[in-house]
Each structure stands twice: as C-alpha cells, then as structure tokens.
Design a protein around this nucleic acid. Structure first.
Length: 432
RNA sequence: UUGGCCGUAGCUCAGUUUGGUAAGAGCGCCGGGUUGUGGUCCCGGAGGUCGGGGGUUCAAAUCCCCUCGGUCAACCCA
C-alpha cells in the first residue's frame, strides 16, 4: 500500500539546493548592504493579530481579500502577515526605540492570490524602514539603499519610478478631484473600473484596462494638488537623487497598493522581466502609520523588495551567479565501520569542509561520488591505510590537460589535518 | 474572482489531430567493462497511478465532463 503523494499547497514550493543557496546568498548580500548603512535586523512574528493589518489597509485587496486569517484556539482572530511595514510600525509603537530607528528585515509573507510566475502565496521579501524622521534626505537614503542593492546584485536593467502623493490633505483633495473627474466619465470606464472608483479612485490611475486608461488620459495631475511644503519635500528628494547619480523617472500615475503611503512613493521595475510581474520592489513614506497603530505620531519611510522576483530579474539579466560552495574533502571509505566517521569528524573540527561516502560502495562508485561532490581532494581510507597507519590523499582537480590523473600521496594518519591545511593554504596564496 | 494555453519516467520532451500492436527518447541515476581509484567511451539495469476522478466505447495517454496543479492575461501586487 502506497499512500498518495502530497504536493505543496497551491502557490507554495520547496526550494532545494542549489536554488536555496542563491536565496540565502541574496539575503546575505542585502543584510551586508543594510548593516553597512547602520540598519539592524528586526524579527517580528509570522502571524499577528489581524487587527494590525485591518487598521492600515481596509480598502486594499491585500487586506480585505487576500489575507490568510484564522482563529486560534482561544478564538482570537489572527493573520499571517501579508506585508511587513505594518508589523514593523507596530513593533515601533510597542517598544518606542530611540529614533531614528533604522531596521531591516527579511522573511516570508502570505497573500491568498492566484499564483503566477514571480507571484506566490508564500513569498520572501527583504526590506528596510527608517522610522522617526521626516527629513527628505531620509527618503533619499532609503532610495539609495534600495538602488545600491540592485547594483550590488549586478542588475542593470532596473528603473526607478517615483511620485509624490503629498500630505494627507493633498492626497484627499486629489482623490476627490479624481473621483469627480471619473464620475463624469462613468460610461467610459470598465465595469471593474467603476467598482474601483467606488473604493479608491487613485487606483484607477494605474489600471491596465484599455477603457480605463483612455478615460484616465486627461485625469487631473497630482502635481497640481501638492501643497507648497509637499512639493518642496518631493523636489528635495529628486535633487538628492540627482546628486547621488541615481537615475529616476517621475511617474505621476504611480499610486501603489497600500493606502498608508504619503509624500514619496516609488517602485523599482525590471525591464528584463516581461509580463505583469515586473515590480521587484517598492516603498515610500508613511507618516501616519505608527499613530494608526497606537504609537505617537511618528514619520517613517521604507521599502521592500521581492526576493523571488529579484532572482528572476537576475536570471533574465544573467546576473548574480552564485557558484556552488567548494568542498575541501571527500572521504572515500573502503573498509566500512567507524574509521571514516572519525576521520571526517577530525578534519571538520580542524575547519576543513568534508563530505563522505556511506554503505561501503565500490571504490569506483565512491570516486564518482567524490568527483561529483566537487571536492578538491579525495581522502581514501582502506585496509592498506588502516594497517600502515596512513591515509591516501588524492588530488581531484580535473582541469589540467596534461596530468592524466590527479596525483596521490600517502600521509601519516596523525598528520592528516596539518597536511590538508598546508595544501589548501598554498592554493589560497597562488590562485590558478 | 474571470478568461486563454498546458499537465506522459527525477528533468526536458515525442506520442493525442486519424481510440487498438505508444509506454518511448535524451539527460540523470544504479551496476559492469577482472586485482582498491573520478571526469570520456562501451554494455546492461532500475524507474511511469500517461495530474486525479467520472463517463463514452469491445478497447482511452488519445474523445467528453468535473476536479487539482502550472502558466499567461484581467484584477492585484513583490
């Protein structure tokens, strides 16, 4: 009797090596970039009280339709986090750390959507937040962090789109102007467009439906609704980008999905990704969020980037190649029993990476395995070695055209680590 | 939530139009090519609920329905 095979739930997947190595490496690179800028990691729960998200995005699909909600055993309404800015703002409100609070994060998030390439129900993001400053230079700093990270990955076909939604009052005025503009063109809108209008007129601006695009063609421009102060803030950010040498395009239709954004809002898109999933990251300023979550009124600015999409973009650009980690030693065990276990343990304790064979397979099979493991040396232990108190160290390099087979030497069992370390050190000094 | 395309070995796919002798290939994996030695080559082998269920038929990978999953687009967004 065989039990039925179980698949991963829809929109989720197993990430096996070597793909997992790439994710780890990308996350590590982000951590480095952020740490260098004085950001420190925050780890928040995977699930939160649903209230945390409900408070900040009742009108967004992410919260109203796509959230994984459940009742725990005490009937408390919980939610798997669909995004990370709200939990970070919640954590800030709870702990009241010294400002400006500079933090980064990474981890899975969950949205109940129909999966597509680059869109999963469980997906990973890396991101950073700077809470406690309304200085436009803080916006510039976050933009620089996101941009330099893309550069560090080797991405060259990413563009920065930026916009300002102004102060809450500006945003509200613009929104109602848009509302009446579209109300006059109800007949031109698609059915879904009319539904969107009722919920959030701003969202009609980036609709991809042709009717809606046409109807939006002559829509009011956000720029005309910015207060003097908001316009100044935006201009300062743009000037900073210019001085930083970071190219950008102002996109007055850029609205973004979460409705806590104020002032600066931006998106990073990969031109190498075609299709609808070309946004690799986005963010902006959210000056009202901390207060919404019960904290003191505190400004904040941040961004998040999709790990999986970044990797898709890297693939498309042939960037961020992660070479498999080198293995120093592969222990070939011809005798079976504990000897190889002791040998492997000993050299690992000496800081040498080592894999080994099991099951006393034929030597030929073990040598094949050693070859495929990519190990620099094979370390053979068999009856002869055991009897003479030695081991055989064999060079597994395969790229030397002349040398027919790797050279091998017998070394005293007691000097194994020393000898391997010596050889590895020599190579480190004289790279091929 | 809506619509299009797709679903055959671990992977990439052929076979589906014209239902039967189509359960196949390459790669990968395992073993062998005489003493304890990798990459190439040669030989052999294992491995498949043809996504799942139902129906039509003497007969279904092949036709019909439902369903699950993937993908593309709308929606939404990372």
């Amino acid at each position: 009797m065989q039990t039925a095979r179980l698949a991963t739930p829809r929109g989720t997947r197993d990430v096996l090596p070597p793909a997992s190595e790439r994710i780890r490496s990308l996350t590590g690179r982000f951590a480095e970039t952020a740490q260098r800028a004085g950001f420190r990691q925050v780890i928040t729960p995977i699930f939160e009280h649903a209230e945390v998200f409900r408070r900040v995005g009742e009108s967004t699909d992410i919260v109203s339709k796509e959230m994984y909600e459940f009742r725990d055993k005490d009937q408390r309404l919980m939610a798997l986090r669909p995004e990370l800015t709200a939990p970070l703002a919640r954590a800030f409100a709870n702990h009241r750390p010294r400002t400006p609070w500079r933090v980064w994060y990474e981890g899975p998030q969950f949205r109940y959507e129909k999966p597509q390439a680059g869109r999963y129900r469980q997906f990973n993001q890396v991101g950073a937040e700077l809470i406690g400053s309304d200085d436009p230079q803080a916006d510039a700093e976050m933009l620089a962090l996101a941009w330099r990270f893309c550069e560090a990955l080797g991405l060259r076909q990413v563009i920065l789109l930026i916009n300002s939604l102004g102060s809450p009052a500006d945003r509200a005025a613009f929104s109602s102007a848009l509302g009446s503009y579209f109300a006059r063109r109800l007949g031109d809108l698609s059915e879904q467009g009319r539904a969107t209008l009722a919920v959030n007129p701003l969202r009609l601006l980036d609709s991809k439906r042709p009717e809606d695009r046409l109807a939006a063609a002559a829509a009011p421009d956000i720029a005309e609704f910015l207060s003097k102060e908001a316009a100044g803030h935006f201009q300062t950010v743009l000037d900073a980008l210019g001085r930083l040498g970071i190219p950008f395009a102002i996109e007055p239709r850029l609205v973004r999905g979460l409705d806590y954004y104020r002032h600066t809002t931006f998106e990073l898109r990969s031109l190498a990704l075609d299709g609808a999933q070309d946004a690799v990251g986005g963010g902006g300023r959210y000056d009202g969020l901390v207060a919404d979550l019960g904290g003191p009124p505190t400004p904040g600015v941040g961004f998040a980037m999709g790990v999986d999409r970044l990797l898709l973009a890297c693939d498309a650009e042939d960037a961020f190649d992660v070479q498999e980690q080198d293995l120093d030693i592969f222990v070939v065990d011809v005798i079976g029993g504990v000897e190889a276990t002791l040998l492997a343990d000993e050299i690992r304790q000496a800081g040498i990476s080592a894999e080994r064979a099991f099951d006393k397979r034929s030597m030929k099979a073990q040598m094949k395995a050693a070859d495929r493991s990519g190990a620099r040396f094979a370390l053979l232990i068999g009856a002869e070695e055991l009897a003479s108190g030695t081991v055989t160290l064999r060079d597994m390099r395969r790229d030397d055209g002349e040398a027919p087979r790797g050279a091998q030497v017998r070394i005293p069992r007691g000097a194994v680590c020393e000898e391997i370390l010596r050889r590895l050190a020599v190579e480190a000094r004289t790279p091929a």
